Amino acid sequence: MQLKKAKTLEPIHPNKSTALFGGKSSGILNWNDIAYPHWYKMYKRLVGNYWQADEINMSNDVKQFPTLTDSEQEAYLKIIGLLSTLDAPQTRTALLLSLYATDPAVQSIMAVIAQQEAVHNESYSYVLSSVVSLDEQNQAFEHGRTDPILLKRNEHIMAQYNAFAEEPTMENILKTMVYTSLLEGMYFYSGFAFFYHLARENKMVGTSTMISYINRDELEHGRFISELFRATLAENPDYNNEAFMNWVYSTFQESVNLEIEWSAYVLQEVDGIDLEEMKGYIKYRANKMLRMKGLSELYPEYVDNPMKWIRAYADNFDGTKTDFFEQKSRQYTKTSDLNGFDDL
Rank of each mutant, 00 (worst) to 15 (best):
M177W: 08
L198Y: 01
L338Q: 08
P306T: 00
K4M: 14
A159M: 11
L338G: 05
T207L: 07
E74C: 09
T169K: 01
A231K: 12
T169G: 11
A243Q: 02
V47D: 14
L182R: 00
N287D: 00
L97P: 04
L298Y: 01
A75T: 00
L134C: 07
Y36H: 10
L96V: 07
D70Y: 01
S250F: 13
Y302P: 03
S125H: 09
L20I: 15
W39C: 10
E276P: 11
A75V: 03
A105K: 00
L3H: 03
E301F: 10
K44V: 13
S26H: 11
E269C: 04
A53R: 10
A94D: 10
E201D: 11
G144K: 00
D54M: 03
P11I: 01
K16G: 00
F164W: 04
Y239P: 04
S17Y: 00
G191P: 12
S336E: 05
V178F: 09
P306H: 03
T93W: 02
A114N: 09
T67H: 04
V127M: 14
E301H: 14
F195S: 03
E261N: 10
R230N: 06
M210W: 01
G185V: 04
M204Y: 01
Q64D: 14
S208G: 12
L86R: 11
P14T: 10
A314K: 08
Q73I: 06
G340R: 01
Y40P: 10
P14V: 09
A243E: 02
L298D: 00
M307R: 09
F252W: 05
L338N: 05
Q137Y: 07
Y249H: 13
A243F: 02
W309F: 02
Y239V: 01
S125D: 00
R230V: 03
L267E: 12
G191L: 07
R285P: 00
Q90D: 10
L182D: 00
A19T: 00
W31A: 06
Y189K: 07
P104Q: 05
M307P: 11
V47Q: 15
S296K: 15
A53W: 07
N246S: 14
T335Y: 06
F164A: 09
L298S: 05
N32H: 10
E72N: 12
E297G: 02
L219K: 03
I113L: 14
E184I: 08
W51C: 02
Y161I: 05
A312V: 01
A163I: 03
P104M: 04
Q52C: 12
M204D: 13
S84Q: 06
K293A: 12
V270N: 08
V119I: 13
R145Y: 05
P306K: 02
L183G: 11
I310H: 00
T18C: 15
S250W: 03
P300V: 01
Q116P: 01
F325W: 09
L338Y: 05
M186A: 14
G319M: 13
L96W: 03
P89R: 07
N240I: 04
Q160E: 13
A101T: 09
E10K: 11
S59G: 12
Y313P: 14
F325G: 14
F324P: 06
H120W: 02
M158D: 13
T102L: 09
E276L: 13
T180F: 15
F194V: 04
Q139D: 15
T67P: 06
P66V: 10
I109N: 03
V248R: 04
Q64H: 07
K293H: 15
Y265G: 11
A94P: 07
T207Q: 10
D343G: 08
N121G: 09
A140L: 06
A165T: 08
K288V: 09
W309Y: 01
